[in-house]
Simulated scan of single mutants.
Amino acid sequence: MINGKEKLIVAIDTDEYEKAVDLIDSLEKSVDIYKVGLENYLASNGKTVDYLVSKGKKVFLDLKFHDIPNTMKSAVKAVINKGVWMLTIHVSDMEGMKQCAQIAKEESERLGIKKPLVVGVTVLTSLSNEDLSDIGCNMNTEETAIKRAKLAKAAGLDGVVCSAKEVDKIVEACGNDFVTVCPGIRPKTAEVGDQKRVVTPSEAIEKGASVLVVGRPITKAENPSIAADEIVKEIESVSV
């Protein structure tokens, strides 16, 4: 049977540290993994990450590093000692990704800690085929995500962030041991918001997603803990 709590990541989408702490405390028994993105990380000066680590929670640090190879490498090195479970970089040039994968391994070994997963962002779930065309990409979202996933694996990354719309194709191309992190997850009753490529929790798991990122359907719910529990149950309803 699937352990739904091991598959669910809750996105902390507030720029206030106190609200983040209240949310984490309200989800104490329901959620074990949290995503901290740019908004909260900068607003809290990283305090939310420290709070989560102090409570024994897993942290998905989603800062999406994207720069020249040396800068990306240095940024990855700088967060290794934060005790995070997983972090993101953008799928970019092969050399930059290789350096990020290597420094994560070397710095973790130097510090004597478990290496965090380093995953590459393929195509943001807020982007459509038209959006990619507007910026000069001659492939659609699925083709782009699959190609970038293959590049990420070849560079030594642990996995990718991708829409559940194409996760089955990525699993087929890169293998079951290649981590697939799927945002843009919305229960059928939830509003889509600014996401353009959304999938329900059960559909994403059925398509092979490793972990799911859920934000507003939980964080904006009247009772976040109940909302999280319902998604965990939906995940666990999938037969494997």
Rank of each mutant, 00 (worst) to 15 (best):
I12V: 14
I12S: 00
D13T: 03
T14G: 03
A20H: 02
V21T: 03
V21A: 04
D22M: 13
D22G: 01
L23V: 03
L23G: 01
L23Y: 01
K29D: 15
V31M: 08
Y34P: 05
K35F: 01
K35V: 01
V36A: 13
G37D: 06
L38K: 11
L38N: 11
L38I: 15
N40I: 13
L42E: 04
S44Y: 13
S44A: 14
K55F: 01
G56F: 13
K57C: 05
K57A: 09
K57W: 07
F60V: 08
D62M: 11
D62C: 08
L63K: 09
K64V: 06
D67T: 05
I68A: 06
P69W: 11
T71E: 02
A75K: 12
V79A: 00
I80T: 01
K82M: 15
M86V: 00
D93A: 00
M94C: 00
G96Q: 06
Q99G: 00
A101I: 06
Q102T: 10
S108F: 04
R110V: 00
P116G: 05
L117M: 15
V119G: 01
V123D: 10
L124E: 01
S126D: 04
E130N: 12
D131C: 03
C137Y: 14
M139K: 15
N140Y: 02
E142K: 14
A145W: 10
R148M: 15
K153C: 09
A154W: 05
A154G: 05
G156M: 07
D158W: 13
D158M: 03
V160H: 09
V161P: 02
C162D: 04
C162R: 10
S163E: 11
A164F: 12
V167F: 10
I185K: 12
K188T: 08
K188R: 14
D194T: 08
D194G: 08
Q195F: 07
V198A: 11
S202M: 06
A204Y: 06
E206C: 00
G208V: 10
V213S: 03
I218M: 02
T219V: 09
S225N: 10
S225P: 08
I226N: 08
A227L: 07
I235K: 07
S237D: 11
V238S: 02
V238R: 06
